[in-house]
Design a protein around this nucleic acid. Structure first.
Lengths: 182, 182
DNA sequence: CTGAACATGTAATTAGTTACATGATTTC
DNA sequence: GAAATCATGTAACTAATTACATGTTCAG
């Protein structure tokens, strides 16, 4: 999956591993994140497979950068993947639910604390999503050409982030209320 | 994470890898699933580390079963994990959002089809959640002793599944409407 | 007689995380 | 003078997926 993300970003324009890491952190991280180590590794791999090419750009005062560009093969790979619709439910991995599932014998107060802490984290991220919705997206779109048609889709993924955190917060409130009245 | 799930289920009562796989499919799969190959591998691993013990039970007409039980060390491991609250947001991996994010240049009709297909899948799963909420949970709790205090937590994770699918369906409707009016 | 359910495993591969490793420049 | 940002990589390890492999019983 990370391969597709890198191909996708490189289809907007050429960039370095560092740039890709920043782009991911600012946009896809809430539904798919990556460590820089994995990004650099996969970029090298894709280069060997002819999906991207790289060019080392020497910086005088800044560190050198290795800038990657899509090859026609890489572009085709991305298109092929996009053209094959997903026909299953995406699988989730939600560590917090695992904890909740097995919390029946835990001290109730500490479960409540953990829930409140999680709620705070979701509230914070929700704020970030709202801020991005207002400002971040416009800036991103202006920076690069030919991304007008992408904006509604970027916005849609952000919107799910918002809705998800809202529902998660509602779920925490409901769960806290349920535990307290027992 | 799967290790904790296996420890958690074994804390209810002893069971085989096959049983664990079924239990996961019926309960935690929507927030954490596992293939049988991984389950069997981790059980062996945990046995070597002294967290569980196993006993081969020969079946005359049925195949042999290897039944695993928690050791005191395993129980302690589970408790230690439960007692250390989660202080970060759980990381998500949502392949469908990756597709959406990069769908700006796709044929609009095929994106709409994919969205409608996903909606159908969520509607189906939502039905399953509602059914489990009504019937499944009671049966599960009755089957095993000392799980009364766990029921509200099982229910809570199911409830999040419900809420999540509901919000996902709402998001799909919103997204389809947005794309259609463009 | 066909498929589902029962039942368990290994091997190969891919993906992802954590740790190790370095070093300049800019901002507070 | 310290911390953040820029910038790239490798190594070790853990986790997860896919494929290979086998065999019985029961229901329709």
């Amino acid at each position: 999956m990370l391969k597709q993300i890198l191909l996708g970003f490189l289809s907007y324009h050429s960039m370095s591993g560092y740039d890709l890491k920043s782009a991911i952190d600012l946009s896809t991280a809430h539904f798919w994140h990556a460590h820089h180590s994995q990004i650099y590794t996969i970029l090298r791999q894709m280069e060997q497979n002819g999906l991207v090419t790289s060019q080392l750009i020497e910086g005088e005062s800044q560190p050198d950068r290795r800038v990657y560009s899509l090859t026609p093969a890489g572009e085709k790979e991305l298109q092929t993947w996009l053209d094959r619709p997903m026909t299953e439910l995406p699988t989730m991995k939600e560590a917090f639910m695992v904890r909740m599932f097995f919390s029946g014998k835990r001290d109730k107060a500490s479960v409540l604390n953990e829930l409140r802490f999680q709620r705070e984290l979701h509230v914070q991220r929700l704020g970030f999503f709202k801020m991005m919705m207002d400002q971040g997206l416009q800036n991103a779109a202006r920076r690069y050409p030919n991304t007008e048609s992408d904006v509604p889709f970027w916005k849609a993924t952000l919107r799910l982030g918002e809705m998800y955190d809202e529902v998660y917060i509602a779920w925490i409130n409901e769960t806290i209320a349920g535990l307290e009245k027992e």
